[in-house]
C-alpha cells in the first residue's frame, strides 16, 4: 500500500501497523463486509417473498397448495441451517450440472463414475476456464438461494401467525361490507398483519444477520472467516508475523455486528412506531395519549 511497506521485517510500531492493516488480505477482509451487506440486502427481500408465498400457500383453500406450504415450512424449519448448508448446495450444484450435461454432453456417458460426479467440460457450472470472480459470484448466488430458502420458511411461519392474529372483528366487518376475499386480503389482512408480524420478522432479521458466518460453509469468504484467518498466530513464514490475535479481531467483528443491530433496531423502531399508529394495542394507545 504505502511505499515504505516493501520490507515489513524492518518496520516497527505505527508504520508496521499501518502496513499490516493495509495488506491485500486486510483489503479482502474489509471488502468482505461489503459482501456480507450485499448478501443480506438481497437475501432479506427474497426470503420475505419466499415467506409470503409460503404463508399464502399455507392459508390457501386449495388443499395441495396448502399442504405444499405446510410441508415447505415444517421441513426446512426442521433442519439446522448449518446442516442444510453442509450438503444442500453441493446437491444443488450437482443437480444443475446434471441438467446442463443432458444438453451439452454426450448423454451416454454416465454422470456417476465410481465415486466421481463427472460432467463434460461444457456442462461445468461455472466453466473451469472462467475467471475466479465468476466462481465467486456463482458461490454467492448459491449462498443467497440457500439462505432465502431457509429464512423464507421461518418468515412464512411468522407471516402465517400474523395473518391469524389480525382481529377477527375487522375481517368480519369487511365481510359485512361485502368485500370479496381478495379484497379482504389486500385491504384489511395484509396492511393490518404487519404490526403483528414485525416483532417476529425483526427477530428473524437479527438472526439472519448473525447467520452470515455460515457463508463460509457455502464457500463465500465472510468477515468471520477473515477474522479467524488474519487473527490466528502468524509464524515467520509470513511477512507480518504476530501472536494469536483472534481476540482483537473477534472484538472488532463483535462491534460490527452490534452496530448492525443498533442501526437495524433504530430503523425497525421507526417502522414499529408507524405501524402501531392507530392500532387498538397498548403501544397504539400510548401514542394516542402522548399526542393528546
Amino acid at each position: 500500500m504505502f511505499s515504505y511497506c516493501s520490507d515489513p521485517s524492518v518496520l516497527e510500531g505505527f508504520t508496521w501497523l499501518s502496513c499490516y492493516l493495509t495488506t491485500g488480505t486486510h483489503m479482502l477482509f474489509y471488502a468482505s463486509f461489503g459482501t456480507v451487506l450485499l448478501v443480506l440486502a438481497i437475501t432479506a427481500p427474497v426470503a420475505l417473498l419466499f415467506g409470503f408465498g409460503g404463508a399464502m400457500a399455507a392459508r390457501s383453500r386449495i388443499a395441495p397448495l396448502r399442504w405444499l406450504g405446510k410441508v415447505y415450512t415444517s421441513m426446512v424449519r426442521g433442519v439446522p441451517d448449518i446442516i442444510f448448508f453442509l450438503f444442500v448446495p453441493i446437491a444443488l450444484d450437482q443437480g444443475l450440472e446434471w441438467l446442463r450435461s443432458r444438453f451439452y454432453c454426450d448423454p451416454s456417458v454416465p454422470v456417476r463414475q465410481g465415486n466421481d460426479f463427472v460432467v463434460c467440460a461444457a456442462a461445468k457450472l461455472p466453466l473451469s476456464s472462467s475467471p475466479s470472480w465468476v466462481h465467486d459470484i456463482y458461490g454467492i448466488a448459491l449462498a443467497i438461494i440457500a439462505f432465502s430458502v431457509v429464512f423464507g420458511a421461518f418468515a412464512a411461519n411468522v407471516l402465517y401467525g400474523a395473518m391469524g392474529a389480525v382481529p377477527r372483528a375487522q375481517i368480519e366487518t369487511a365481510e359485512a361490507y361485502g368485500f370479496t376475499s381478495r379484497q379482504i386480503n389486500r385491504r384489511i389482512l395484509l396492511p393490518q398483519m404487519w404490526t403483528y408480524a414485525l416483532p417476529g420478522l425483526s427477530n428473524l432479521w437479527m438472526i439472519l444477520i448473525k447467520a452470515t458466518p455460515l457463508l463460509f460453509i457455502l464457500g463465500v469468504e465472510d468477515i468471520v472467516y477473515w477474522a479467524r484467518e488474519l487473527g490466528g498466530a502468524k509464524t515467520r513464514a509470513f511477512d507480518y508475523p504476530h501472536p494469536d490475535w483472534r481476540l482483537y479481531y473477534f472484538l472488532g467483528v463483535l462491534v460490527f455486528y452490534l452496530l448492525m443491530t443498533w442501526v437495524s433496531e433504530r430503523l425497525l423502531d421507526r417502522v414499529r412506531a408507524r405501524l402501531s399508529h392507530g392500532q387498538a394495542t397498548l403501544a397504539g394507545e400510548a401514542m394516542r395519549k402522548a399526542a393528546a
Binding site: S74, M75, R77, G78, V79, I83, F87, A91, N115
Partner: peptide, 26 residues
C-alpha cells in the same frame, strides 16, 4: 462425512433426526 468423504449420507441422517425432533417440538 470426513471418514467416508461422502456428505450425502451422514448429513441427511442428522437432518432427518432434526426434522423429526423439530416436528415434535412444533
Amino acid at each position: 462425512a470426513e471418514q467416508t468423504f461422502n456428505p450425502f449420507v451422514a448429513y441427511p441422517i442428522v437432518a432427518g433426526y432434526f426434522v423429526a425432533l423439530t416436528l415434535l417440538l412444533i
